[in-house]
Design a protein around this nucleic acid. Sequence first.
DNA 1: TTGTAGGCGTTATCAG
DNA 2: CTGATAACGCCTACAA
Lengths: 363, 363
Amino acid sequence: MSEKGSGRRPTVADVARRAGVSVATAGRVLGGYGNVSADRQAAVQAAGEELGYAPNGVARSMRLGGTRSIGFVAVDIANPFFASAMRGVADVAHAEGYETIVLNTDDALELERNAVRVLLEKQIEGIVVSPTSVTDIEHLRIAQQRGVPVVLLDRHSPVLPADSVVIDNERAAADAVGHLIEAGHRKIGVLVSIDPSEGPELVTVGDRLEVHGPSRPSVDRLRGYVNALQKHRIRVRPKLVGLSPLQDRPHAEQNLVTMVTGRDAPTAIFATDNVATQIAYATARRMHRAIPDELSLVGFDDADWTVLVSPPLSVVAQSPLEMGRVAAQRLFARIHGDEQSPATITIPTELLVRDSVAKQARR
Amino acid sequence: MSEKGSGRRPTVADVARRAGVSVATAGRVLGGYGNVSADRQAAVQAAGEELGYAPNGVARSMRLGGTRSIGFVAVDIANPFFASAMRGVADVAHAEGYETIVLNTDDALELERNAVRVLLEKQIEGIVVSPTSVTDIEHLRIAQQRGVPVVLLDRHSPVLPADSVVIDNERAAADAVGHLIEAGHRKIGVLVSIDPSEGPELVTVGDRLEVHGPSRPSVDRLRGYVNALQKHRIRVRPKLVGLSPLQDRPHAEQNLVTMVTGRDAPTAIFATDNVATQIAYATARRMHRAIPDELSLVGFDDADWTVLVSPPLSVVAQSPLEMGRVAAQRLFARIHGDEQSPATITIPTELLVRDSVAKQARR
DNA sequence: TTGTAGGCGTTATCAG
DNA sequence: CTGATAACGCCTACAA
């Protein structure tokens, strides 16, 4: 029987007293280190059980200087991408004997800074973060200076010497758009989750159009779109580029409606993320534009539903689970002392061709 | 400029030395308590900045005896239900100044026990858990005995005196089946994610059929199905009850195929969870059974995709986000000393009638 | 207002 | 093998 009630939790000293040995001996038995004679071993064991002794990890962390915890900082853990990534991180952490503390930032820099500060206070040993900004990263640099390794997930920072795990957004997008072009499409619209007010600029350099702005998944995907078109000598029409804030569904819907009902309406749409894909699909249906006969569509992320609809959607698939796993592996390599220079690891994506793209006769 | 390099992190004592004051004074300034004269205040402040002082939460926890952390133990954080619930929990925790540690159990009791043990060692102050078993809960009882409040999410335990946040599974299911019955359906199949080998028993008591077995969401939903049928004096046919392990997709698919192609094939299906709903929908399509004309379907959980398919699916909607929030609120009430007797809080569900149920002429 | 000293629970060192 | 003791970093009586 263990003592009930919520009295103070028994400590090594309590067990030692009860077993009639020193704290050192009790500690050795309970902690499983050092050598203790069989009889005392048994006595301490017994006393421990009777008292219901359980080790105090905080005290141990205090003494040993490690908390066996890491932090995972993401935009929104309810988002399937981050939920899966988190699972990958937690799995690797668990295998290493570490726990994972999660914090949401809602893409707000201030919350992210705060999250990192709190994690450092809690003395976590490493951070996997999908940063809001890849340039405004002083807080991450501070973590590194304090000896806490940082691994970037889904984004790479040109100014922070940290490992990052990403996909090749530009190429993934170019593949998707290339697929549409090969099917004969020339007027291809793109739906991107970027706030137009802080969006990248489209700049003409010589005879080429370039997307200027810091590298971010959505921006890079837009770059891929532009590049694919130019490679095939197709003009990029601003009217076919739809920028909307990530959370602003109505804005995105309106964007698509305007695009599709305007002059020079696109025959195909490339949606650059899971939210945009949902919106594109739902809006096309609401407008009674048959997919793919009246409008072809390539989406991003292999969400469950993309094979449930008819026709099943062609999408660019990535693996957040794998990204999370690899990120955590890099993190633990660092925690274990790896000092190699920062690496950017690219996880492959795959264009899953299903039935949402129609052949388009060249005009 | 702060000192770079990964030398030992500065402590209050370091700052004190540099500022030429006692540790007590430095502590008062750095920790923001007590009274310190303006000049020393400034000196300590400055010394702190120069050294890049940051408080050590572990030491603080050691001294004060609270870690400002709670644990969230779930089957699989990548599952949308738990991901949303987690978000709800983390939001409330964040508002209280607490962080959340997540652990996955994969529905394995041993992993759950381990998770709770680790959380207790880490001295978390409370646990929200969606337990694998509602009877095998010794580990949760231990947490309570140690003064760590436990709130059950999505399940209620008859043997653990803890708050629980659930939905009325039986009624939700009965509503769904009632809806089918009202539409004229008499042969209604049900798809449940229960391992047949450890499933509940269907027992005849008098002229009624009862589902025997401990309360669990899936079992209760099956109960609701049985009750709804019996209320309308419709015979429950074992052949129309499909039990499959949660993770075993092929098994579930086969179950449905057998059911639909057998004699007395159902005219409608009730899928009792999000996985079963996906499988039912996908399988119906694969078999070219038109929904709702040839087969009506009511699903569980208002997943995004249910409005993207055509026809949009009628479903029983629950709010995992809200469940997580409420669970965390109960938890913090306990942490703050609430001693009222354990409550079971039922979060409402809603039957969302869309277009996947056809009127069925009475024969 | 300021400083000294003690203790939170654990583990490591060192002497016996 | 065993035990006394110090130390991790912080906070807080208590004394000055």
